[in-house]
């Protein structure tokens, strides 16, 4: 299982002309591999992640995940791709406030079609693994910031995606929680054997990853260890 990215470009069209954000990104990752991407704000790293996750379309380029090309898919197929192949963790947890923690985790499964009892059990397991077994029936408003993000992580994994993406998942958390979340992500990545790509602006957190790359002005390059 591999992820192949070829010459991804993206431009934003504004009133004063076009603004290039991604300028030809290439990447290869095998499964079981994890990657941290660093860069300054506005460098395009979030945009790249969105493209990988099927949340945004590039101007040109190709992506292949296990032989699937999301860029060539119809809107419906792309939705399935997002649902089943990708798990996304946002900076703001984006949990739905009207559902309980368990229901939030189950939400992706409603949209896809998975046998019910099986998935409920899986959800409960996941929540246990992220340490929220006692908070299953609570509403997001009753959780702390760190707990919410952990719930978001559980949600991202409920469909056992091949690609787990996290866009500054610790941006709103304090140092201790941040480190916990990162470690959690890595641990679950190892257990699930998926591809994990995390965007972060923290050097300390990036150091936790075996491979680090840097995005600068739309170009992705291997980070030099001294940075």
């Amino acid at each position: 299982m591999t992820l192949q990215v070829r010459q991804i470009r993206k431009e934003f069209i504004t009133r004063s002309g076009s603004l290039p954000v991604l300028c030809g990104i290439d990447l290869d990752l095998d499964s079981d591999k994890s990657l941290a991407i660093m860069g300054q704000s506005g460098s395009g790293k979030s945009t790249f992640l969105h493209v990988l996750g099927g949340l945004d379309k590039p101007s040109s380029g190709k992506i292949l995940l296990d032989g699937l090309d999301p860029l060539a898919m119809s809107e419906t197929d792309l939705a399935h791709y997002r649902n089943q192949k990708v798990g996304f963790v946002f900076q703001d947890h984006h949990l739905l406030p009207q559902c309980t923690v368990l229901e939030n985790v189950l939400l992706p499964s409603l949209l896809g079609a998975m046998p019910k009892n099986e998935v409920i059990q899986l959800a409960k397991d996941l929540l246990a693994r992220v340490g929220l077994e006692n908070r299953m029936d609570h509403m997001p408003s009753e959780l702390s910031g760190g707990e919410r993000q952990r719930a978001a992580v559980a949600r991202a994994l409920i469909m056992r995606p091949r690609l787990l993406l996290a866009d500054e998942p610790t941006g709103n958390l304090d140092k201790r929680n941040a480190e916990n979340i990162m470690r959690l992500l890595l641990k679950l990545h190892e257990e699930e054997k998926n591809i994990l790509i995390v965007v972060t602006h923290s050097v300390d957190l990036a150091k936790l990853f075996p491979r680090v790359m840097a995005m600068d002005d739309g170009i992705l390059a291997e980070a030099l260890s001294s940075n």
Partner: peptide, 17 residues
């Protein structure tokens, strides 16, 4: 425990009362 799309719709409606 059961959680269906219908229930989701109702919860959402109630939340955004």
């Amino acid at each position: 425990m059961s959680f269906s799309l219908e229930q989701f719709v109702v919860k959402t409606a109630r939340f955004h009362l």
